[in-house]
Design a protein around this nucleic acid. Structure first.
Lengths: 206, 206
DNA sequence: TCATCATAGTCATCAATCTGACTACTCATG
DNA sequence: CATGAGTAGTCAGATTGATGACTATGATGA
C-alpha cells in the first residue's frame, strides 16, 4: 500500500526555519547597519538571543538582499573601505511578522561546561573548577554590561515607566532575559564551585 | 613571503570539538543504556545540558563504539526486539577526562522566541504573547519535573548533606542548573507577558 | 620604518545537526 | 482480526553553522 514512495520532500527551502535569518532581520530593526557593524552588535546586545560569526552575517545579508528582505546602500568613505548599509524592507518586515506568528521550537541549554560538570565525579575536578571560575567572571562582566545597556536604553525614565510608554521595548525585554540568565548562571557557578571545593578537601577521607 | 600558502588545515577530525560525543559519554556514566533508553534520558535529565534526536544518538553510539570509547553488549529479549546496551570504556573515560580539561567555549542562549520578542514593537504582539504563555507553561512543568528528579537523586538526605557526601553529584548539579534556568525563564515570560498586555490595552491612545 | 590593529569584506569547505522515511516485532483494545 | 501504540533500530539527505585563508587600506605605535 504505502501511498507514496521516495517522494523527494516537497518542503522547499524558502519557507522553513532558517534560524539566523530572522535574528538578523530583528537586529536590523534598530537601524541601518553594515555587516561589520552588525557583527559587533551580535557580540553585545544581540548576543542575548543569538550568536554568529561575522562571515555568517555577511553571507546571510547577501542572501537576504537577494530575497528582497533587506536593501543595501553603498557608502563610500574617504578614509575607510567602502561599506554597505542594510535596511529591512516591507517584505522583510512581512517575513518577520510571519515568523513571529509561527510556532517557536522549545529552547534548551547546550553547554560544554555542563557536560563536564555532569561527568565531574569520574574525572579530575580541578580543571572543571577552573573553568567554572572563568565562566563566573565572564557572567559577572556580562551582568555589568547588560545593566549598563538597560540603563542606556531606558534613558531618564524608570524601568516601569519606560516599559509602559517606551517606543522600542523589544531590545530591552530581551536584554532583561540576558541579564537574568547571566545572574542565574553566575550564582550557579559560585555554588557549584563551593560544593566541588568542599569535596576536594575531604577527598580520600570518609 | 607569507610563510605558508594553502596548507590544508592540519587539524584532523579525531580531536576537535565533536559536541554530541561527550554529552553521550557523560550521560552513559550513569549506567548501561541502549540507544532507545538513552533517547528517553535525553528527553528528561540530560536535556538540561544537551538535546538530540534518537537518530543522532544511534549514529553517535555507533561511532563511539567504532572508536573504542564505548562497548556494546547484545541483549536478546524474548518478547521485545533485541537491543544493544552500551558502557563507557577506559578509553572513553580518558577521552572524557581530556575533554573536561580542555577549554570550554562560552555558552549563549539561542532562542527563536527571543528573536520574536526583539521584534515585538514592529510585528503583531498577539501571537508572541500566546507563545510566551505556552513557554511559561512548559517552563513550569519542567520546574516540577526537575524538582522531582532532584528529590529522587538525593534520596533521604538533605541537599547540603547529599552534596557533601553523595557519590554521584554531577547529575544533581546539572539538574540544579536546569531548575534555575527554567525558573528564571518562567519569571521572565510572566513579566514580559504583563508588559505586553498592558501596552496592548493602551495601544492607540497616548 | 616596520609591525600591528581596526575597518570592511569574500570564498571555499568542513563539521554538526536535523528531518523524513523506512523495517520489524509485540501487545492491548475494540 | 485490524488498528494503533510502544520497543528498537537504520538509512539517506538537506540544512545550518563554524572555520581557515585571503585581499585591501589607513591609522597607530615602538
Amino acid at each position: 500500500m504505502t501511498m507514496m514512495m521516495h517522494k523527494p520532500s516537497g518542503k522547499g527551502k524558502g519557507s522553513g526555519a532558517m534560524a539566523l535569518r530572522h535574528a538578523v532581520l530583528a537586529a536590523l530593526l534598530d537601524g541601518e547597519y553594515s555587516g561589520y557593524e552588525l557583527a559587533k552588535a551580535f557580540d553585545v546586545g544581540v548576543a542575548n538571543f543569538w550568536h554568529a560569526q561575522p562571515q555568517q552575517l555577511y553571507a546571510e545579508l547577501t542572501r537576504l538582499e537577494k530575497d528582497g528582505l533587506v536593501t543595501g546602500r553603498q557608502v563610500v568613505q574617504e578614509t575607510r573601505p567602502t561599506k554597505r548599509l542594510f535596511t529591512v524592507t516591507d517584505a522583510g518586515l512581512a517575513e518577520l511578522q510571519r515568523f513571529a506568528a509561527a510556532a517557536a521550537k522549545p529552547s534548551f541549554i547546550r553547554d560544554d561546561l555542563l557536560v563536564k560538570v555532569q561527568a565531574v565525579d569520574r574525572v579530575d575536578a580541578g580543571p572543571v573548577i577552573a573553568q567554572l571560575e572563568e565562566r563566573m567572571a565572564v557572567a559577572a562582566a556580562k551582568t555589568d554590561l547588560f545593566t549598563k545597556i538597560l540603563r542606556h536604553l531606558r534613558g531618564d525614565l524608570e524601568e516601569a515607566e519606560f516599559l509602559r510608554t517606551g517606543e522600542r521595548i523589544g531590545p530591552y525585554l530581551t536584554c532583561l532575559r540576558g541579564l537574568g540568565f547571566e545572574r542565574e548562571h553566575h550564582d550557579w557557578c559560585r555554588s557549584t564551585i563551593a560544593v566541588l571545593r568542599a569535596r576536594e578537601k575531604t577527598a580520600g577521607r570518609d
